[in-house]
Simulated scan of single mutants.
Amino acid sequence: MNLYTELIAVDIGTSCIKLVSIEHGPGRQGYIVKNLELQELPAGLIGGDFTNPFISDMPVFKEILSGMVRKVKHSRQGYVIGLPDRWVKLHLNTMQLTENERKSPEFLSWRLEKNLPIPEGMRVMVDFQILNSVAGESDSFHVLAAAVKSDIIDILSRITTDLGMEVMAFDTSSLGIFNLFEEVYPEKILDQIVVNLHVGHETTVVKAYSAGCLLYERVIEVAGEEFAKIISEIDTVNLENAMRAKESEKFFPVSRDDIALLVNKRQRIDRIFGNWLRELNVTFRFFQEKFNVSRLPTIFMTGGSTMFAGLDNFLSEYFETSCFLFNPLNEIPLAKKIDTRLVAKGPTFAACVGLLAK
């Protein structure tokens, strides 16, 4: 696995911030995880979407980030910061480009900004990646563009500058996950499509990749927080208790005995997860029709809200395809072991580790 050791990854989510840094092991054999931090955030501190991203309390956010940065005790070149998926607008383009145009980032950024569906008067920062050429057309290329509102980048830049953080790049967190998956399972992506199902606190992000390039994306506004809210309504408890119940309660069968036990909870489970499953079903069926895919490809799951025991087997049967939980901390060749309790949280850290993937 090829990872940056000179950078520190910070993944900003709506419920927590993650920080990861690694270094080479002795003789550059394997890696040593130097920092693996997760700090929960007050409700409502980070929110909004592409048109209205916000940090509701700047001093609180700055203090939390400062506390995490202070734990980094070794010098690095700088930080790469992952932004919430809801803040970033991804757009797949097919563009005719001359050789000179391909070599001009300023021109391409300007051209993409004009083509992107951006509200009039909204200032954005645009980054892009030329993925590959269109088959049979030497001057046409698939281009992935990412846009984020300039104001939120300006705010984050001021905060990180005040904290003495040299930011090398802002990125969209979940895109790097595929780079990790590609290195671990090269045989699973060869001449085939794979799907990443990333379930976080507020959103579920579905990304399909073909030949190493993003093919399709949809953001679903249902995820871990919504599951907890429904539990809160059913059990008449506050959201904090519902979040704890969500993490400890069994919803999906792991053994034969579980099947009998969960039959009586069928209505409860359907009420908690039914809307999410219906949205996934609509998403996958649309994807299959659009790209003429008869059978759903392999699904690999990441994110803190995918860690329900038995969920991978349940989804495998529900969607009639292979579905499994991807834990990058299990796959990194480690020169020094880390606490098994932290390793178990690997799917939660997947997007953050992905920011370090080369």
Rank of each mutant, 00 (worst) to 15 (best):
M1S: 12
T5W: 06
E6Y: 09
G13K: 02
S15Q: 13
S15H: 15
C16R: 11
I17G: 04
I17F: 05
K18T: 00
L19G: 01
L19C: 02
S21M: 03
I22N: 01
G25E: 03
G27D: 03
Q29A: 14
Y31K: 05
V33D: 01
L36K: 06
L41H: 12
L41F: 13
P42K: 04
F50M: 02
F50E: 03
T51F: 04
S56C: 05
V60R: 14
S66F: 13
G67K: 09
G67S: 10
I81N: 08
K89I: 09
L90Y: 02
T94K: 13
M95E: 08
E99I: 13
E99G: 03
E99S: 14
N100K: 15
R102A: 10
R102H: 11
S104Y: 00
E106I: 13
L112E: 06
K114Y: 13
R123Q: 15
V126R: 05
N132V: 11
N132Y: 12
V134I: 12
H142T: 09
V143D: 07
L144F: 04
A147S: 09
V148S: 09
V148M: 11
K149C: 12
D151F: 13
L156S: 09
L156M: 14
S157E: 08
R158A: 12
M168Y: 09
D171W: 04
D171Y: 03
T172N: 12
Y185V: 07
P186M: 10
E187N: 14
I193M: 11
I193K: 11
L197V: 05
V199F: 14
E202G: 01
V205T: 10
K207D: 04
A208W: 01
C213Q: 01
R218I: 04
V219K: 03
I220W: 07
E221N: 13
E221K: 10
E226W: 00
K229N: 08
I231K: 04
D235P: 00
T236N: 15
E240C: 01
A242R: 04
A245T: 14
E247D: 14
F252G: 06
R256G: 07
Q267D: 07
Q267R: 03
L277Q: 02
L277T: 03
E279D: 08
L280D: 01
L280C: 06
T283E: 08
E289F: 07
K290C: 05
K290D: 11
N292Y: 11
S294E: 08
M301Q: 08
T302I: 07
G304R: 05
S305R: 06
M307Y: 10
A309H: 08
A309L: 11
G310R: 05
L311M: 15
L315A: 04
L315H: 03
S316N: 09
F319G: 08
T321K: 11
N327F: 09
L329D: 05
N330W: 07
P333K: 05
L334M: 12
L342G: 00
L342H: 11
A344V: 01
A344Y: 06
A344W: 00
G346L: 03
T348R: 08
A350M: 06
C352S: 08
V353E: 01
G354M: 05
